[in-house]
Design a protein around this nucleic acid. Sequence first.
DNA 1: ATCTATTCCTGGCTGC
DNA 2: TGCAGCCAGGAATAGA
Length: 269
Amino acid sequence: MPELPEVETIARGLREKVLGRRIASVQVWGALVIRSDRKRFATDLQGQTVQALYRHGKFLFLTLQPSSLVLKIHLGMTGQLLFEAPSMTPLKHTHIGFRLTGLAEELRYRDIRRFGFLKILKKIDSKLGPDAWDSSDEVIFETLRKKSGMLKNTLLNQGVIAGLGNIYVDESLYRTGLHPRKTLESLRPDKLRELCVSIRAVLSESLQAKGTTISDYRDINGQSGGFDQRLRVYGKEGTPCRVCGGKIRKILAAGRGTHFCSRCQRAPR
DNA sequence: ATCTATTCCTGGCTGC
DNA sequence: TGCAGCCAGGAATAGA
């Protein structure tokens, strides 16, 4: 499932390929992933040049000229952006194809579970908090300092900090020795600082490995990520903690499978 | 303000 | 081997 490092990896690859190119045509095989006016989708995009590509949290924003419209993309759980030869029969669950001028391959959006979506907007919208990677440590620290609630809930909330998903929240909390059900307001400033450092370290390491491959994540070249081997708690329930030998457990928190070390990460109260 | 439950969806896994 | 049932979860939304 693509979280910040995976989406950033995709964004970097995409920029190289699509910036400055004009969208020659748009093929729609499955319109259900389009969350704006479906009738207008292809015609709005055709003839537009991709001026810039931004990532904010797990969202991608492609700004288009001359219309100034914005194509907003979220990959959900299983969304993939792939470059394939137009002659190649689209893989099952491929929904949209973009032909770009001067590019032999076609950019295709594939999404098995269809939790992802594409949307055309008049301008970049943002209900998101500061990006977990692009913002300074100070901004992340100050943002979290003003918040309350359970760590797992708050860190997953994209309106607070944008980009963290289930995997990286669990991994960050593990590294800081914090139980996912602890509250933000119960943390001393130095511990919160430590959490911020852990978040950045996990993201940095995963980005270097080009992300984690869980489910169907692939970058634009169809490559999977390499961070899987560095996961310490996510998907490791029942195995011993590498630090203390305690048992890694899995509970439900914030409606998500939540992994932690029963010894390193003490439950509140 | 914060939290939980629900909806969307399909492939993979479990158990019989 | 087949198949039913369950599980995974990001975002949006309703309701507590």
